[in-house]
């Protein structure tokens, strides 16, 4: 008992026995999952393992049927909606890069900045010098400074992924959920993205969902393998990839 409550107290994100089903299909089956502050965690698993559903539940898009979802051991995320959760400090990158294509890259970042997001505050908002500096900083982090005035629609697929990560950074989250960040990227881009995520994880927790085993190896972090809605194995990449159940369910022989 003691260890469980200790785990909870230390955790940034705490999921216990979370289940959800859609029309009889159990997408999550008493899933338990803990992320500690400052941790970089990778999640793997076959299609339909519940990876995206888990992210939906953490970010308030889907309500679980049963189970506990706590943020910083105090905030019940099942009672909050997406905007609340985002404001609490959980950022999410979608599988398909989702940026504001008819805005410039600069505007995309400006919108993402962690400032008062109420209607009237945004109506009367003016860009302050420190906000400007912050955006410039992020632009250089995501290597898009030279294209800041272009429309986001003109970016390549990989650059859109980076812009989205940049937007998450501007949000200043405590926890970043990243869904398949390197899908459709070249090898060089993949390597750069791994660097970027490691950089980011220095100051906050990051959870990465990815299929690319090479990329996960490159991250070199603790891996959780999901299958059929619950955790199959957890540990280092070598430990998990040698687990017979994981091989059976996911990696194949």
């Amino acid at each position: 008992m003691n260890t469980i409550s200790e785990t909870r107290q230390k955790s940034l994100l705490y999921l216990e026995n979370v289940s959800v089903s859609f029309d009889g299909f159990k997408a999550l089956n008493s899933l338990s999952f803990v992320v500690e502050p400052g941790e970089l965690r990778a999640i793997i698993g076959p299609n339909g393992a519940g990876k995206t559903t888990m992210m939906d539940i953490i970010t308030g898009k889907t309500r679980p049927d049963t189970g506990t979802v706590l943020f910083e051991d105090a905030i019940d995320l099942t009672k909050k909606d997406e905007a609340d959760i985002a404001q609490l400090g959980i950022g999410r990158k979608f599988q398909k890069p989702t940026v504001f294509e008819s805005h410039t890259i600069w505007d995309n970042l400006e919108l993402a900045l962690n400032r008062d997001r109420s209607v009237f505050a945004t109506l009367f908002y003016t860009l302050s010098p420190e906000d400007e500096a912050r955006i410039e900083e992020i632009l250089s982090t995501i290597r898009l400074s030279h294209r800041k005035d272009e429309l986001a629609a003109n970016l390549s697929h990989g650059q859109k992924q980076w812009l989205e990560i940049g937007m998450l950074l501007a949000q200043e989250p405590k926890l970043l959920l990243v869904d398949e960040p390197v899908a459709g990227m070249t090898d060089a881009e993949t390597a750069e993205t791994a660097e970027l995520l490691k950089e980011i994880a220095k100051t906050r927790s990051v959870v990465v969902v990815e299929h690319d085993m090479g990329f996960i190896r490159e991250l070199g972090v603790k891996v959780t393998c999901l299958a059929e809605g619950s955790v199959l194995a957890e540990g280092s990449i070598d430990f998990v990839s040698n687990d017979p159940k994981v091989i059976e369910n996911y990696l194949g022989r």
Partner: peptide, 20 residues
Amino acid sequence: KFGKVLVGVRDAESRVRFLG
């Protein structure tokens, strides 16, 4: 900035939501 958010809602509503 509100207007930019507005266009954001038009183009990618869930992104706006997940930005808080």
